[in-house]
Design a protein around this nucleic acid. Structure first.
Length: 936
RNA sequence: GCCCAGGUGGUGGAAUUGGUAGACACGCAGGACUUAAAAUCCUGUGGGCAGUAAUGCCCGUGUGGGUUCAAGUCCCACCCUGGGUACCA
C-alpha cells in the first residue's frame, strides 16, 4: 500500500477531476460552444474527419487531429472569429453489419450504442464542439438528403460543351431537336440517331440511351463473391484468393451496379487542385490518381475477322516496334477471336485470372503470365500479322483494355516477349542519351520507315497526324481515374430510391418521387446474404415487392455516399426543407481548415470534391471546392503484445526461448503486460479459458512478451481508451501530452512514457497562481525580464499555431513557466495574458484560474494577447565563430555592425588568433544575426 | 510492383527552412528535504579518446556518393518503416 501514488495530496494542489467536471457541466449549461449562423464576426470553419463509431470505442489515436483542430478553433474564437466546429458520425459500414452477422444484434442498435460511448469520450476530452449540430449518416433525417442528392445526380448529365453538369432535361431537349449529334456528353457511347430517331424511340429505349449519360448510372461490374459464405466480399476481406473468414475460395462475379460518373469531372478535379492550400504530397497523390496522359488511340484490324479493336498508347512513335498485341482477359473480343486450337489454353488462363485481384495482377513483375489467342492483327503500315495475346497486366478498366506491346521500349512488354519468345525490334537509337532507360522518351527513330531520323517527340507528333489522316487513329487524352462504384450488396447503408418493373433488371430503373424520402431500411431476420450475391434485403419480400407490382432496388449505397457532403449539413443541420439552406451556405461557404488522415487522400476527398462540383454547377453551393486548407494528421499506432505458442501444444515460451521451438505468435491484451513487456500469467489465465490450462515456460524467473507496432484495433487487443488516461491525469494533461508528442503529421506508437512531463508542467503552472489553496497573484509591476518572457512566448505560440506546430507551442509554454518559476513571478500583469494564451490547449485549468482571478466571463471568450516587439529588442548577439565550417568559439558582438567592424573585432580575438595562426585568411563570411565563418 | 510520406541520443522530439545538431520533456545517475516513502527541488546525461581536474580533440542526423565557405536541411543512388492502391473507414 505504501507504494500507491498519494492521489489525495496530489489533488489538494491541483484537483483536475473536480475542476474538469465542474466546467464541463457549466459550459454545457451556458451553451458556451453554441454557434450562431447570424454574426457580425468573420466566419471560420474548422472541420475534423468524422469517425466511424467502431465497437472498440474511440481510442487514443483519434484525438491527435481532434485536439489540434480544437486548439485551433479556440484560438480563432479568441482572435475574434465566429467559428463553426462540429462533430458527427460516419455511421454506415461493414463492421456493424459483420457484428450483426455474428451476434444477431441490429446494426442500428450497436451503432447507436457505439455513438453514445464515442460522444461521452469526446466530451471528456473537452472539445468545443457545438453538439446541437451533430449529424449521423445513418439517421433517416440525414440520409433523406443523401438519397435526394443521388436523385439529383441521376437526373443529371455532364455537358462537355458548357463543361458543367446539367439537368437531364437539357439533354433530352437536344436529342429531340437534333439527335445524338446535337449533344456532347460525358460517357455517352451508343449508336447514333437523328431527331426523328429519338422521337420515335420507345420510352424504354430512350431510358437506355440516357443511362449512358447520367451522373449516377448503372453498368456491369465485377465483385468478389464467396459461394461458401453466400456473400459478396470487400477487397480487404479477400486474402490470397481466399476469404479471410473461413479461407473459402472466392471468384469474381459480374453484376449490374450503380456508378458515380467521377470521370466527367476529371479535368476540373485536376485543375482546381492548384489553388488549394493542401499539402503538396496530397495534391500529388490526387493528380497521380486522376492520371492524365496524352497519347493516341489506334484501331487495328483483326485478320480473318470483320472486326477491329482500339488501343491507347502514349508512345505512338513506337508502332514499328509493336511485335504483339495484348488484350485484357476480360476484353469483349477474346471469346470471338480465340482459335479452336487455343481455346482450351485461353479458358484455363481465364480461370486463373478470375481468382486474381487487380492489385496482384499489376504488382506481379517477377512472373509474367499470358496466353496466345491464335488470332493476328494487321500492322497498319507493314501489313504484317501481329499476334494477339491476353495477359493479366492489361486491365479492362484502364484505357481501352488493349495495348500494342513494344518490347524494345517498355519493361513489362519486354519481360513478356522474353518469356514467350516474341521478337524484339530495336526502333530507337538512344546512343545520344547515355543513361536513358528503356521507357524514357528519348532518342532517334530507326527501323521505323518514314519516322527514321526523327527525335521521339517529333515522331509522336508525326505519327499521330498520319494516323488521323489515315482515319485509323487520333490524338487522345486518357485518364486513369475510373467512375466510382456506388453499389454495395449489403444491408447497412442508404437504400436507393429506385424501383424496377421487373426483378431481373431487364427494365430500366425508375426513381421514387422526392416526397417518399427518406426511404428507410426494412427490418431483416438475418444479415447474411442470399446465394445469388444480392444483399440480405432481397429476402424481405414484402419490402422488395410493391403493391403496384414494382420491385425495389436491393443494393445500398457505399460508405462514401454520406461522407461526401456531411460538412454542408453541419451548417444547417435541422433544415427540413433542403439539404442546406441558402442563407447558411452563403454565410459559411466552405471549410477553412480540414484535418484528417492521409488514408483518405484519394477516396473520400476526391468523392467529396466531385459532389461539391455537381452542387456548384447547380448553384447550390457558392464555392468550387469544399476544403480550402487541408492538414494531415498522423496515426497514433497501437503497441501490441504477443506471446509465442509452440505449434501443436498448449504451451507458451518466454520471448528469449522462441527460436528454440516452432512457434506461432498470438496477440494478447496489453493490460496483462507491464512496462517491461513482462506478462502477468495469472491475469491472462483468468481472461480466457484456453489459457487456463496452458503451460508457460519462464526465462530467468519471468515471462517476456514480444511487441509489435501496428494500427489500433480491437482485434489486436492493443487499444488504449482515452478515458483511462483522463481519469488518471486529467483531460488538460492528456491534451497537452498528445500535442507534445510531436508534429501532428507524424505517426507514432502510443506510450504513456513522458506524460508525467506535461502533468508536472500543469502543476508548476498552477503553483504560479495558487499555493496552499491561496491565490498568490499580485498586482506588482512586471520587470523587463518577465515581460520579455511573456512576449516572446506570445510571439512563438501565435506563430507556431499558424502552422499547427502545437508541439513547439507546448515546449514554449514549458520554457515560459520554468523562467517565471525561477523568477518567482506571481504578477497578474504577466499571468493573466498567459492564461488566455494557454486556454486553447488546457481549457479547464485555465478557466478555473481565470475565475479565481476574479474575472466575470469565460477565459474562452477573452481577448487574445498580442506581443509587443519593444520588450524583445536585443542589442548584442553572441556569434558562433566557425573556422573552416567548424564551430570553435563564441564572441559577443553588437547587432548591426558592418562586416569590416565585425571582421576587425573577431580577428583581434586571441582565441581566433590561435586557430588561424600561420594560415592565410581566404574568406571572412559574416551573416548578420546568425554566424561568422572564417576560411583559412 | 506503382503513388505518397518518414528515418536525428536509451526514448518522444527541437533546429528561425542552407548558418552553434540534440531546445523542451521522458528515462537514468547522483544529491537535498523525510524515520521512510510519495511529492517537490538541485546537478549531470550523444559516443569515443586524453587528462587528477578545469578542459581539449576526434566522430556523429538510415547507407554510399556529390554540391557549398557552411548540409539533418539541397542533388544522385540505395536500404528500411508507415499510408494508399479503386468494396475497411
Amino acid at each position: 500500500m505504501a507504494s500507491m501514488p498519494n492521489k489525495l495530496e496530489f489533488n489538494m494542489e491541483y484537483n483536475f477531476t473536480e475542476i474538469e467536471a465542474t466546467w464541463r457541466q457549466k459550459w454545457q449549461e451556458n451553451e458556451l460552444y453554441k454557434v450562431s449562423n447570424n454574426s457580425d464576426k468573420p466566419k471560420y470553419y474548422v472541420l475534423d474527419m468524422f469517425p466511424y463509431p467502431s465497437g472498440a470505442g474511440l481510442h487514443v489515436g483519434h484525438p491527435l487531429g481532434y485536439i489540434a483542430s480544437d486548439i485551433y478553433s479556440r484560438y480563432k474564437r479568441l482572435k475574434g472569429f465566429n467559428v463553426l466546429h462540429p462533430m458527427g458520425f460516419d455511421a454506415f459500414g461493414l463492421p456493424a453489419e459483420q457484428y450483426a452477422i455474428e451476434t444477431g444484434q441490429h446494426p442500428r442498435t450497436s451503432t447507436e450504442k457505439n455513438i453514445g460511448y464515442f460522444k461521452e469520450q469526446l466530451q471528456n476530452i473537452g472539445f468545443s464542439y457545438d453538439w446541437s449540430r451533430e449529424v449521423s449518416t445513418c439517421d433517416p433525417e440525414y440520409f433523406k438528403w443523401t438519397q435526394w442528392a443521388f436523385l439529383q445526380m441521376f437526373h443529371a448529365w455532364y455537358n462537355q460543351e458548357t463543361d458543367q453538369s446539367e439537368p437531364i432535361d437539357t439533354l433530352i431537349a437536344k436529342f429531340a431537336q437534333g439527335g445524338s449529334a446535337a449533344a456532347k456528353g460525358a460517357g455517352g457511347e451508343h449508336e447514333a440517331f437523328d431527331a426523328d430517331g429519338w422521337n420515335d424511340m420507345s420510352p424504354s429505349d430512350q431510358q437506355r440511351i440516357l443511362m449512358n449519360y447520367r451522373l449516377m448510372f448503372q453498368a456491369e461490374s465485377e465483385v468478389w463473391f464467396c459461394e461458401a459464405l453466400g456473400t459478396v466480399l470487400a477487397n480487404d476481406e479477400v486474402k490470397d484468393g481466399l476469404s479471410e473468414r473461413g479461407g473459402h475460395p472466392v471468384e469474381k462475379k459480374k453484376l449490374r451496379q450503380w456508378f458515380l460518373r467521377t470521370t466527367a469531372f476529371a479535368e476540373r478535379l485536376l485543375g482546381d487542385l492548384d489553388d488549394l492550400n493542401w499539402p503538396e504530397s496530397m495534391k500529388e497523390m490526387q493528380r497521380n490518381w486522376i492520371g492524365k496522359s496524352y497519347g493516341a488511340s489506334i484501331h487495328f484490324d483483326i485478320i480473318g475477322h470483320d472486326k477491329q479493336f482500339e488501343i491507347f498508347t502514349t508512345r505512338a512513335d513506337t508502332i514499328f516496334g509493336a511485335t504483339f498485341m495484348v488484350l485484357a482477359p476480360e476484353h469483349e473480343l477474346v471469346a470471338e477471336i480465340t482459335t479452336p486450337e487455343q481455346k482450351e489454353k485461353i479458358e484455363t488462363y481465364l480461370d486463373y485470372v478470375r481468382k486474381r485481384s487487380e492489385r496482384d495482377r499489376l504488382s506481379e513483375v517477377k512472373v509474367v503470365t499470358g496466353e496466345f489467342t491464335g488470332a493476328y492483327a494487321k500492322h497498319p503500315f507493314s501489313g504484317e500479322p501481329v499476334p494477339i495475346w491476353i495477359a493479366e497486366y492489361v486491365l479492362a478498366s484502364y484505357g481501352t483494355g488493349a495495348i500494342m506491346a513494344v518490347p524494345s521500349d517498355d519493361d513489362r512488354d519486354n519481360a513478356f516477349a522474353e518469356k514467350f519468345n516474341i521478337p524484339i525490334v530495336e526502333i530507337i537509337d538512344k546512343s545520344k542519351y547515355p543513361g536513358a532507360g528503356r521507357s524514357d522518351k528519348l532518342g532517334i527513330m530507326i527501323n521505323s520507315d518514314f519516322l527514321d531520323g526523327m527525335e521521339v517527340p517529333e515522331a509522336i507528333q508525326h505519327i499521330t497526324s498520319k494516323l488521323e489522316d489515315m482515319g485509323i487513329g487520333k490524338g487522345k487524352i486518357n485518364y486513369r481515374l475510373r467512375d466510382a462504384g456506388f453499389s454495395r450488396q449489403r444491408y447497412w447503408g442508404e437504400p436507393f430510391p429506385i424501383v424496377y418493373d421487373s426483378e431481373d433488371l431487364s427494365e430500366m430503373p425508375k426513381t421514387l418521387p422526392e416526397t417518399e424520402l427518406p426511404l428507410r431500411l426494412p427490418e431483416v431476420e438475418s444479415y447474411s446474404q442470399s446465394p445469388d450475391g444480392r444483399s440480405p434485403i432481397a429476402a424481405i419480400r414484402d419490402w422488395v415487392e410493391l403493391p403496384n407490382g414494382q420491385y425495389r432496388e436491393t443494393d445500398t449505397m457505399p460508405g462514401y455516399a454520406g461522407s461526401s457532403w456531411y460538412f454542408l449539413r453541419y451548417m444547417d443541420p435541422q433544415n427540413k426543407g433542403t439539404f442546406v439552406g441558402q442563407d447558411a451556405i452563403n454565410y459559411w461557404k466552405d471549410v477553412d481548415l480540414y484535418i484528417g488522415g492521409t488514408e483518405h487522400a484519394v477516396g473520400h476527398l476526391l468523392y467529396s470534391r466531385t459532389w461539391h462540383k455537381y452542387f456548384y454547377d447547380q448553384g447550390l453551393v457558392p464555392t468550387k471546392e469544399p476544403f480550402q486548407r487541408l492538414v494531415n494528421q498522423g496515426m497514433i499506432q497501437g503497441r501490441s503484445n504477443l506471446i509465442y505458442r509452440i505449434k501443436g501444444e498448449n504451451k507458451f515460451v518466454s520471448l528469449e526461448l522462441k527460436d528454440q521451438h516452432d512457434c506461432s505468435p498470438i496477440h494478447i491484451p496489453i493490460k496483462f503486460v507491464d512496462g517491461k513487456d513482462m506478462l502477468d500469467i495469472e491475469a491472462l489465465k483468468g481472461w480466457r479459458s484456453d489459457f487456463e490450462e496452458a503451460d508457460f515456460v519462464l526465462h530467468e524467473g519471468g515471462f517476456k512478451c514480444d511487441f509489435d507496432v501496428e494500427k489500433m484495433s480491437k482485434r489486436l487487443y492493443n487499444v488504449t481508451d482515452p478515458n483511462d488516461v483522463i481519469s488518471k491525469y486529467g483531460a488538460d494533461t492528456f491534451r497537452l501530452y498528445i500535442m507534445f508528442l510531436g508534429p501532428i503529421e507524424d505517426s507514432k506508437p502510443w506510450s504513456t512514457k513522458g506524460i508525467e512531463g506535461t502533468a508536472k508542467f500543469l502543476k508548476k503552472f498552477w503553483r504560479l497562481f495558487v499555493q496552499d489553496e491561496q491565490l498568490i497573484v499580485t498586482d506588482d509591476k512586471a520587470s523587463p525580464e518577465e515581460l520579455k518572457t511573456l512576449h516572446k512566448t506570445i510571439k512563438k505560440v501565435d506563430h507556431d499555431l499558424s502552422t499547427l506546430g502545437m508541439n513547439t507551442c507546448v515546449s514554449a509554454f514549458m520554457v515560459c513557466v520554468n523562467e517565471l518559476t525561477a523568477a518567482k513571478c506571481h504578477k497578474r500583469e504577466i499571468l493573466e495574458p498567459l492564461l488566455v494564451l494557454l486556454a486553447p490547449f488546457a481549457p479547464f485549468v485555465t478557466e478555473e484560474l481565470y475565475q479565481r482571478l476574479g474575472n466575470e466571463g469565460s477565459v474562452h471568450t477573452a481577448v487574445y494577447p498580442e506581443h509587443d516587439e519593444q520588450y524583445l529588442k536585443e542589442d548584442a548577439y553572441e556569434y558562433p565563430i566557425s573556422i573552416n565550417g567548424k564551430m570553435r568559439i563564441k564572441i559577443n558582438l553588437p547587432l548591426g555592425i558592418d562586416q569590416a567592424a565585425a571582421q576587425e573585432s573577431v580577428l583581434a580575438n586571441e582565441m581566433v588568433q590561435k586557430w588561424i595562426e600561420g594560415k592565410d585568411l581566404r574568406k571572412f563570411i559574416y551573416v548578420p544575426g546568425r554566424i561568422i565563418n572564417i576560411v583559412v
